[in-house]
Design a binder for these strands. Structure first.
Lengths: 149, 149
DNA sequence: ATATATGCAAAGGATTTGCACGGTT
DNA sequence: AACCGTGCAAATCCTTTGCATATAT
């Protein structure tokens, strides 16, 4: 099974309904390689889905995060951003962020090496603090070439 | 030079004045091992510094972050938190966060190993994307033993 | 038919801004 | 004296909630 059908079943599996807004938002984010805010999503769908409310966007993004279909990203900028979470390992990446203009670059350098260290650290933290660890974030902050001027 | 005096000079070096609110906030955060929100700071100083305004807390925290004396932390919870940034390498750490109750644990496991990998990745990213990288964050997310219940 | 999803308007919470006053240099 | 810092109130921005209506199952 693939494409929208897969998502439809996944939603049903969570006892959620397959609706036009949900389909549109999932479609948009799965195609886009960008990290979109709720307003970005709202703005992008405004033309093709007039009448769609910002509230619904927020509620849908939240649902999709809870279902594991999206990642929610929180940099210090006041707004949350969302990225589609492809299932496969190949696309595992982290972020390089420009603190001036907010540009976000996905990078995949050394992820293998990184993953080993992550695993090791995760095990140690689980043992030491009793947490059930579910996720990790790594990010680099700096100034992009354009903003350096 | 050490203690408050050091900070006073550092503020002056930035063309900033040494005032009671700034002294109190710096003092509080340098002593505390916690990760405090603006409201936390405001609440903690309310008794000893009546009349201190929340606005001043925000402005001071912002100043101290720009000066490099504090780290600003943004988890997904809507509010920013601040931690004192001791100059020395010994205290370099990262965060383990409970997604249920928001508890934050500082950990230092494998930081040496980590630092090597960070350095390598940083170099690669600088070369490849032309960023001037100034900082990095690593965090683990999960559920703490208390919240697992 | 029934429970869930949506949209609008209003509420909420964190952070920022305008402005007159007060304190540091 | 000159300029920066502060406090208050109001304004902003992002996100959530209440409620009546529309829709999926």
């Amino acid at each position: 099974m693939r494409g929208p059908g897969k998502w439809q079943h996944r939603l049903h599996g969570h006892g959620a309904r397959w609706t036009a807004p949900r389909s549109a938002i999932l479609e948009l984010l799965s195609r886009s390689s960008k990290h979109m805010s709720a307003k970005d999503v709202y703005g992008s769908l405004n033309r093709t889905h007039p009448g769609l409310g910002l509230t619904t966007v927020y509620r849908t993004l939240d649902l999709l995060v809870r279902m594991g279909l999206l990642n929610k990203l929180s940099f210090g900028s006041g707004e949350s951003r969302y990225e589609f979470r492809s299932g496969d390992e190949e696309t595992h990446h982290h972020h390089l962020i420009c603190m001036q203009c907010g540009k976000i670059i996905d990078y995949t350098d050394f992820v293998d090496e990184e993953l080993k260290l992550i695993k090791k650290t995760e095990d140690a933290l689980t043992r030491k603090h009793g947490f059930k660890i579910t996720d990790h974030n790594i990010e680099f902050l700096g100034i992009c070439p354009e903003c350096k001027g």
